[in-house]
Design a protein around this nucleic acid. Sequence first.
RNA 1: AACCCGAUAGUGUAAUGGUAACACAACAGAUUUUGGUUCUGUUAUUCCAGGUUCGAGUCCUGGUCGGGUUGCCA
Length: 562
Amino acid sequence: MSEPEANPEPLDFVRQIVEDDNTSGKWQGKVHTRFPPEPNGYLHVGHAKAICLNFGIAAENGGLCNLRFDDTNPEKEDVEYVESIKEDIRWLGFDWEDRLFFASDYFEQLYEWAEQLIRDEKAYVCSLPLEEIRSGRGTPSEPGTDSPFRTRSVADNLDLFHRMRAGEFEEGEHVLRAKIDMSHQVMLLRDPIMYRIRKVEHHRTGDKWCIYPTYDFTHGQSDSIEGITHSICTLEFENRRPLYDWYCEYLKIHHPQQIEFNRLNLTYTLMSKRRLLELVNSGFVSGWDDPRMPTISGLRRRGYTPQSIRNLCATVGVTKHNAVTDMVVLENQIREELNQTADRRMVVLDPLKVVITNYPEGESEELDAVNNPEDASAGSRKVPFGRELFIEREDFMEDPPRKFFRLGPEREVRLRWAYFLKCNDVVKNDAGEITEIHCTYDVDTKGGNAPDGRKVKATLHWVSAAESVPLTVRLYDHLFVTEDPDDTEDESGSWQDNLNQDSLKTLTAQAEPSLAAAEAGYRCQFERKGYFVVDQDSTTDERVFNRIVTLKDAWARAKKKK
RNA sequence: AACCCGAUAGUGUAAUGGUAACACAACAGAUUUUGGUUCUGUUAUUCCAGGUUCGAGUCCUGGUCGGGUUGCCA
């Protein structure tokens, strides 16, 4: 009766926990997750993994996923970030429906809970200066010492805490601390800070508050208020789980389970919001959405699709050990998608003039070119052909090495969708540089096939010199020259030393006319060169194309090996 | 020298005590009007030492290596 299932997709360890909980009835079959960004920067592809995980698990289990901003540090946060984060999540294809929340909406409740802990003698106002709180905490191997204010009466604590809120004290004069254990082996449990005084305007609450709760005193309770079942976060919060549990336990509130997974890292880039902000501020990149940035907005502008990013997140897996995924895994996702869906177009990035000496002067014709060999429904288009063309400079060599299949003196190649072409002569300037080449074409090979069955070893892309249109093309490369930005030559070096100074090259290319009217966001393949997208900087006079990714290039690889 | 977490081909993951596998990368070949795509094949893996067991990547003990913890950041 019960046939074994045909290779069920293996569950990652987080999904396994969720499934086990559903089986045991731990949460009565309920699954409720959340994605809790701090609005202090733009989302990056590492966040995409968390988004896919949280929204994905909810969807797969008939549950819900909230969007909650963890906005407890007004000094670094801003509405600009709130809006960009919402846009990026929507663009990725996820929907929080009516469940948009802010931790700052819970400030009043949090304040009451703080009072409750004071009354329960689980919290106290500590009036030690910052340095003394730090030194009093000890080190991982030596216990800390109790604050002299640890024994303050409940009445005094309540009074002081109220006056903190009322703004009677300056920043740093007092903090509220949990009373746990100053000699605990887990440093975090040595009377952690719950509230600090910050006389700073908050992007949502304005000047209503001058005391702000810390992450630890906010996050678990926010989860609790929202009825979260599985609080999924990254590995660096592992150490904080005891405190998450402590607050839920002593507050006697709904207690979600925190589960930590490994964040996404990619080679040749970095995922630190602080460092990405530095890159933006330094001007090395044009902004958070610079197409070299690993931000969602950067990848979007680079031409990546939501599907390609979701596919990456599905591919990398979810475990508990620090992993670095090769950038080519991301690149392959967009290549795979665009190979199926993108139009092919001919664009010459580095033009070399070709004169076809046996083509009648003053004449031209239109040839049929297939739009996408992977998709017959994409149809075909007309491309103009004439006596003078441009081909890619690197597709011609006067003295070709052994494995070079492209054009050379007395060699014959195919012009894509056009004719066979043979080179007869090379014209140079005084400096010895090739300025143009003279060729003849075989009129019987129209469309690219020889009736006599002869073969050529290469097919080149080309454009008509008279009818091509100029395009601004931005060639992007890795942000860093090393796989690991921190891998500096000497120890005094910094990650900035590894920035790729050649990560952006701008040039003017010659394109077939059909590209003159391409609209922002249009993606296509420049045949033999890569996938490109029209950038938002385009104007009616100037089309700007960003290179999303190159094609795989066996010839380039062979050259590099030598 | 304290505590927490981790370790499986080059990279990322699977194997839920029972034949170590998949994807990407690399390499070789076939096909090809993109040196693209597609197809075929090859190379290569359980950190170490003990223990439990008929049987250990998986369980136990010890070690090694890596990451994290000493913010009034999240």
